[in-house]
C-alpha cells in the first residue's frame, strides 16, 4: 500500500465514521439512525483494515473482521429487530432540536481538537493527526445520548461513544492488545444485548420507547 493511498484511505474511512455520527443527530427516523450506525461500524472496520495493511499486522486484520462482524452487522441487526417492534418510531422532538444539535456537534469537534493537542503531539503520524476525530465522534455520541428521547437512539448514542473510543484506540496505538480488544468487544455486544432485552421489557411495560417516562425514581 503506498503512502498517499494509505493516507487518503484512512482519511476517508475516518471521515465516514464522523459523518455517520453527525447523521445520527440529523435524521429523525430511528431506522435511519440505526442504518448510519451500521455505516459507522463499517467505517471503523475499514480504518482497522487500512491500518492493518499499512503496518502489515495480521492481528489488526482479525480485529477488523471482528469489528465488521460485531459493529456493522450483529449490533445493527439486533437494533433493527428492536425497531421492528415499534415501526415508524421517530425522534420527533429531541431535547435539543436538530439545527442546534448540529451546531453543538461542530463545537464539540473543535473542543476535541483543542483537547487532544497533547496527544497528537506525541503521535506524529498520519493516524495520530486523526485522533481528534475519534474523540469528536465520541462526544457527538454522548451528546446524542442525553438529547434523544427514544431508547434506540440512546443505545445508538452509546455505541457511537464506543466506536469513537475504538477509533481513538486504532489511530493512536494501532489497537489495544488482542486479548483486551476481544474482551472489550464481547462486553459491548453483551451490553447491547442486555439493553435490547431491557428495551423490550420497557416497551411491554410502558407501551413506548420514550425515555422521558422513566422518571418514577427520583428524589
Amino acid at each position: 500500500m503506498t503512502g498517499s493511498f494509505y493516507a487518503s484511505a484512512l482519511e476517508i474511512a475516518v471521515s465516514v465514521v464522523l459523518l455517520a455520527a453527525m447523521v445520527t443527530l440529523w435524521r429523525r427516523s430511528v431506522r435511519a439512525i440505526v442504518r448510519s450506525l451500521a455505516v459507522q461500524g463499517f467505517g471503523l472496520a475499514t480504518v482497522a483494515a487500512v491500518l492493518g495493511f499499512h503496518l502489515g499486522d495480521p492481528g489488526l486484520l482479525v480485529v477488523a473482521a471482528l469489528v465488521l462482524g460485531a459493529k456493522a452487522v450483529v449490533i445493527p441487526y439486533l437494533l433493527t429487530r428492536l425497531v421492528r417492534v415499534d415501526p415508524g418510531s421517530r425522534e420527533t422532538q429531541p431535547l435539543v432540536n436538530v439545527p442546534a444539535s448540529l451546531v453543538a456537534a461542530g463545537a464539540l469537534t473543535f473542543l476535541a481538537f483543542a483537547a487532544t493537542r497533547s496527544v497528537t503531539a506525541v503521535v506524529p503520524s498520519i493516524a495520530g493527526r486523526l485522533i481528534p476525530v475519534g474523540l469528536a465522534s465520541m462526544l457527538v455520541g454522548f451528546f446524542a445520548m442525553f438529547t434523544r428521547r427514544k431508547a434506540v437512539s440512546q443505545i445508538v448514542g452509546l455505541l457511537l461513544v464506543d466506536n469513537g473510543v475504538a477509533l481513538v484506540a486504532f489511530l493512536a496505538t494501532s489497537g489495544v492488545p488482542l486479548l483486551v480488544e476481544l474482551g472489550a468487544s464481547l462486553d459491548v455486544v453483551l451490553a447491547v444485548v442486555v439493553l435490547q432485552v431491557l428495551a423490550v421489557q420497557l416497551r411491554t411495560r410502558l407501551g413506548a420507547f420514550d425515555l422521558d417516562q422513566l422518571t418514577e425514581l427520583h428524589d
Binding site: 496527544v119 506525541v122 473510543v165 493512536a172
Partner: peptide, 14 residues
Amino acid sequence: IALAFLGTVLVYLA
C-alpha cells in the same frame, strides 16, 4: 466505563 476505556487507551498510547 467507555470514558475509562478511552483513558486506558491513552495510558497505553503514552
